[in-house]
Amino acid sequence: MMKLHQLDRSSINNSSFTTKIDDFPYFLRIWHYHTELELVVILASEGTCFIGDSIDKFGVGDVVLIGKNMPHMWLNDNEYFQVDSKRNAKAIAIHFKEDSFGKGFFEIPEMIHLLELFSRAKFGLKFLDLNKIIIKKIENLHELEGFEKTISFLQILDKLAKHKNTKSLSSLGFLNLFETSRSINQDKVQSYIFRNFNKSICLEDVAKIANMNPSAFSRFFKKVNRKTFSRYVTEIRIGFACKLLLEKKLNIAGVCYESGFNNISNFNRQFKIIMHCTPSEYLKRHNIES
């Protein structure tokens, strides 16, 4: 991972929110955050989505709402970075703030369900089985202007707020840790963890980055994450392993070592603890659902 960057997503066209189409050979590999909420629809390409401490596979048709100041990055698969690649990565991104339509706008009774949606989006919110009509409405938003565009956007938010099948991405622990004082160099800590989770990684090295002694860092980490550092790293590794399993490019042994585990038995044991099934059972269930 690169250093965490704060990006400016504010409107330069005297508009209360912005819509833009990203169409590149691959998405920018920047681990970043911004003060605006971000609604993303993936129109082309696939890869791995990093939101907070979550690692999830993304593909065409995915719709995700990311809360303000939540670090994230869309990383395309390796094929997209080949010199002779003919692939392209395309998405529509909408950036807005909770006060985009005026202070207190979303606090009136008719809009309170949208405020609740924004609260859920603090962790990153993925919408599953979303009606294609809503997705198309989001795509068309870029072609609208003025009052018509604003009304259409509010209708989209209304539909998303009422959609029941969603998946919360990042953990409460990450949110608490990230919002805590930067005196522990949280951006450097997270960058180091994401860059090294599939290698040998120890608490002492991370504590050194945070400028804390290991025991103090361990206590602090467990307090804000409600889990130990080793458990945190294991969950990230298992999340990455799930992504690799679904891609079906490696066998289970290959996934084990690629995810940072040293032996199959420990990988199977940790996978079952976190996913409540073995890797082979996970694959079997996914095949049935597909």
Rank of each mutant, 00 (worst) to 15 (best):
L141D: 01
K159D: 14
K223Y: 12
M2Y: 06
G124P: 12
Y232N: 12
D129Y: 11
G146W: 05
E36R: 10
K86P: 02
N251G: 15
H95M: 03
F220E: 05
I112Q: 13
I12V: 12
I156N: 09
V64S: 01
L7K: 14
R231D: 15
T234G: 00
E139V: 14
K20W: 03
A93P: 00
L28M: 10
F118V: 07
H113C: 05
D23Y: 11
N185E: 04
Q155P: 00
K103G: 02
F58W: 11
H72F: 06
L172Y: 07
F261Q: 07
I236Y: 03
L130R: 08
H72Q: 12
T19P: 01
I94E: 06
K164M: 03
K97D: 08
S191W: 03
K86H: 07
A207V: 08
I42G: 02
N225L: 13
L172P: 02
I133R: 09
F229Y: 11
M275C: 14
M70D: 03
F194M: 08
E139S: 04
K136S: 15
L175K: 10
Q270A: 07
T278F: 04
K149V: 08
R87L: 15
K149S: 13
G61H: 01
L160S: 05
N213A: 05
M73C: 12
H276Y: 09
K149C: 11
P25C: 04
S170D: 02
F27C: 07
F240K: 12
L7T: 14
K227F: 01
A241D: 01
K68L: 03
C49V: 09
L175F: 12
G102W: 06
F153I: 10
E46Y: 11
K3A: 10
L117S: 00
S183M: 12
A161P: 00
G52S: 10
L114Q: 09
F127N: 02
S16P: 10
K248W: 02
F118W: 07
E143H: 11
V60E: 14
R231T: 15
V64T: 13
L37G: 06
I55H: 04
S171E: 10
E38D: 09
F217L: 05
E79C: 03
K137T: 12
E46P: 02
I138E: 00
F267M: 08
K68S: 15
F194Q: 04
F271Y: 07
R182C: 03
I201E: 02
R226Q: 14
N14L: 06
F27S: 13
D77G: 11
S290I: 13
E258R: 15
E148G: 04
K208Y: 01
E36C: 10
I66E: 04
R226K: 14
M2N: 12
A93I: 14
L177S: 14
S16T: 13
S290D: 10
K222T: 13
I138W: 02
I288M: 08
G61E: 00
N69L: 09
S181F: 00
K272N: 13
E116A: 14
T228S: 15
L125C: 01
H286M: 02
L245V: 06
Q186K: 09
V189F: 07
Q6V: 11
V233Q: 02
N268T: 06
G59T: 01
S10T: 08
L141H: 09
A241V: 01
I184V: 02
L75S: 08
K167F: 07
F81P: 09
A93C: 06
T35F: 05
R231C: 06
S171W: 06
I236H: 04
L157P: 00
E98Y: 07
N268V: 05
I201C: 01
L43G: 09
A216G: 06
